[in-house]
Design a protein around this nucleic acid. Structure first.
Lengths: 339, 339
DNA sequence: TTGTAGGCGTTATCAT
DNA sequence: ATGATAACGCCTACAA
């Protein structure tokens, strides 16, 4: 049995396609009897409008697009959480999500082009911004609304972000308060937009505290647990190893903790550790991980809300939202050190 | 500047829309010079085919649909992991994912109808099957291909599942080997399809072992950590409390562990605990959680592969895949008990 | 090798 | 109150 269309109902009811369309759409210039009859037939036939056709005609799709890195699974929980937040608010407003998993690079960009220029979505949500991000350059040359999680400093586009510079600065102070003087940083890959402010926050804090500036104490990871472990290895092998290690995300912090333990040292006592994000694994790690909280789910919700306002052409009060970081102190940062 | 269409290029080049279309589509009945010229113009104009129009015309969308429970975020990691697996393989084959977040119920079903009858997707992936699942009934009455994670026993549809009955049975035996005789089960909500086999496996194992059948040792949870904690509370308050608690997913097991600890008991020594799924938190819990592994990501990949074969009308060797459960024994199940 | 014409299913405009 | 007609952008017989 073929799918019912307006034409099917038109044939069945004897009314024109136009009238059927209008009756179903709730226009008030349709005889009430006619409408009832048409609705009845539509239901009997299980009519469901062909959304593809509707979208072609009406120029909008009630769909939000998102391209996610192909690596994202448990190893990159962050993205899934963001997705949930966006999806929740999208659904709330009657929007669906169109997802494309891509490895960052050429193909990724063409996924954006397919979605946007291909008219498949009404707007895009971006995350994991890179320093000079081709995707943003592309979107800027487009009429398409978009919102971004993260920002690169001087560039101008609608974003929401947690103040990473401030967060890291506060964390350095936290460790300094506990008596640490050799504080290391496991930095994010250079090309990610949030790398710069976080590293800047680190140096700024050392400056404020009058601590020496030692480049050997900054090691770059790739956000994975493994890279965090490797970085910690390297740091602990230094002639004058750090007593505190700050990682720029929780995954790497967890990796560092594992490496420390493997080395026979105790996290929180011999070496203090902190992360960034506050993923669920952070709280349940042992010892529980001190970190800087990013309310990712809520940020996702807010991104969706903002985007939908933008799509509807409504005004948005603040297109550059910078959230206060929130330090979550747990056992991995240890106790204040004597002496 | 308006978006370029075939017509734009047609006007610009002087060739008809047809020729432009065929040139771009790579037909070989186009003069090579003509093609070059057309391609050049298309690139200059940044032409991107309107996929909505193409879909309307061609009757397929290269898109896989999935409806996810609105609650899914960190609290329901399972779904995100499945999603990643599906998305990975989908991308591999040039498919995108259309997601709709919905609370189970009426609205949820109409999300399926929008996707399927609305011609927005070529196939659907289902998970969290319920006992008499209206979604499956609906899809059966449709020409749309679909695949399911989980199965309800007697019902017939394409699925992949882990043998939960066997898994639970083996776990009961594991605890019995360790010397436990009071083994409790925290069961999933009755309406979920995977509840029945797991509970059946529990009773079957007791039978095999000649252990007494005590209904008080089976408590139903709702898959959340909190419900796991509540269930454990109840079990430990029994006059003759269990010495081992098996939860039907890891979240509930973690909740149970928390409750046990709160009560001043030691997990693995006073009370053994096991879960189901092997989410990442299981390995990093303290003590690490004994559980039954479901390779969710891989299952997601396989679901996508199967679905895409179905969509392409290719043959699929096995539409009912039942995977062997894999017990992962960790510290939460303790040591063999003396006496 | 190229062009004409029709249609996918919907909505909007304009008559009647 | 209802209907004929066109258009969204694309693809594909069929003609020339």
């Amino acid at each position: 049995m073929k799918r019912a269309t307006l034409k099917t109902i038109s044939d069945e009811s004897g009314f024109s396609i136009t009238t059927v369309s209008r009756a179903l759409a709730g226009y008030d210039d349709v005889n009430e009897q006619t409408r009832q009859r048409i609705i009845e037939i539509a239901q009997r036939l299980g009519y469901q409008p062909n959304l593809t056709a509707r979208h072609l005609r009406s120029k909008h799709t009630n769909t939000i697009g998102m391209v996610i890195p192909l690596t994202a699974h448990y190893s990159d929980l962050f993205f899934m959480e963001l997705l949930s937040g966006v999806g929740q608010q999208a659904a709330q407003h009657g929007y669906d999500l169109l997802l494309s998993a891509q490895v960052p690079g050429e193909e990724e960009l063409s996924a954006y082009r397919r979605m946007v220029d291909g008219s498949r979505v009404d707007g895009m949500v971006l995350a994991r911004v890179r320093r000079h991000d081709a995707r943003i350059d592309y979107l800027k040359g487009t009429a398409q609304p978009y919102v971004v999680f993260g920002h690169s400093g001087d560039d101008d586009y609608p974003y929401i972000d947690v103040d990473g510079e401030k967060g890291i600065r506060q964390m350095v102070h936290h460790f300094a308060d506990y008596g640490h003087r050799r504080i290391a940083l496991i930095a994010p890959p250079d090309e990610l937009a949030f790398a710069a402010p976080r590293v800047a926050g680190y140096w700024a804090a050392l400056e404020e505290l009058g601590l020496p500036r030692d480049p050997a104490l900054v090691v770059t990871g790739d956000l994975s647990m493994d890279s965090g472990a490797a970085a910690a290895e390297r740091l602990l092998s230094l002639p004058d190893p750090p007593t505190a290690i700050m990682a720029c995300n929780d995954q790497m912090a967890l990796g560092a903790m594992a490496a420390i333990t493997t080395r026979g040292l105790r996290v929180g006592r011999d070496v203090a550790v902190s992360g960034f994000d506050d993923i669920p694994a952070a709280a349940s790690a042992s010892p529980p991980l001190t970190t800087i909280r990013q309310p990712i789910y809520q940020i996702g919700q807010r991104l969706a809300q903002t985007l939908i306002r933008l799509i509807h052409g409504e005004t948005v009060d603040n297109l550059h939202v910078l959230l206060e970081p929130e330090l979550v102190i747990r056992a991995s940062s240890g106790e204040p050190r004597s002496g």
